[in-house]
Design a binder for these strands. Structure first.
Length: 215
DNA sequence: GTCCGGTGTC
DNA sequence: GACACGGGAC
């Protein structure tokens, strides 16, 4: 079998168990976290979220000055850019009166296009929002997924959407599978499949070709 | 390809 | 000290 995504998923799930993502109390917190975590360590995002907690309501964030917001989220890095991005996102959501249900009623592809149209929301951020806050079944292609799939030996498309669709075809509309899959890949990338991989005792040893980047 | 950026880790 | 980090815009 060339590229057995189901086997990969099962192997990860058997080892790590259910992850029950995303780590957030509310959909808003989830979506803000998605912006804050762009190319940033999650630990730094948690620090920013703690400072931001008193303002973690759509109206409160809308009222907050961008400069003030930037200061609050400083620990997450790229704070000026991210403050702008959060503002853009809130402005977009405001069109729906900050109603999650109204947004969730939109078609998956329609909603993705709308999110991609928001300044500061790219494919990955849009997809994690779709998956973890808006109940849309999408496979998230992040740097970890690319790294892990590559090292295992899977020959994946370079294009984000081609990569995504390739995996999605294996699990059509399986919301909870995509939910767990992305979380498991992140966990695995943190624990074993790091920049410097820890291949000894890696739970994927039996199915991994241990390919090295730059071949 | 380059910039944005604070916070861990090696 | 360099380097990496649930990316995206320019």
């Amino acid at each position: 079998m060339e590229q057995d995504y189901l086997l990969l998923y099962k192997t990860l799930f058997d080892h790590y168990g259910p992850q029950n993502w995303w780590p957030a109390d509310t959909p808003l917190e989830m979506m803000i976290g998605a912006i804050l975590v762009q190319n940033t360590n999650w630990r730094n995002v948690e620090k920013a979220l703690i400072k931001l907690r008193p303002y973690l309501g759509a109206e409160a964030l809308d009222r907050l000055q961008e400069e003030e917001l930037a200061q609050l989220i400083k620990p997450s890095g790229f704070f000026n850019i991210k403050a702008k991005r959060i503002k853009s996102f809130i402005q977009w959501w405001k069109q729906y009166n900050f109603s999650l249900n109204r947004v969730k009623k939109l078609e998956k592809e329609t909603l993705r296009k709308e999110l991609l149209n928001v300044h500061g929301i790219g494919r990955e951020t849009a997809d994690v929002m779709l998956l973890y806050a808006l109940d849309k079944a999408v496979f998230v292609v992040d740097a970890y997924a690319r790294r892990i799939f590559y090292r295992i030996g899977y020959d994946m498309p370079n294009s984000y959407d081609q990569f995504r669709l390739e995996v999605e075809q294996t699990f059509p509309e399986k919301l909870d599978v995509f939910n767990e899959f992305h979380a498991l890949l992140v966990e695995h990338a943190k624990q074993y499949c790091r920049t410097r991989p820890l291949c000894d005792k890696c739970p994927l040893s039996s199915i991994c070709k241990k390919r090295v980047e730059g071949d």
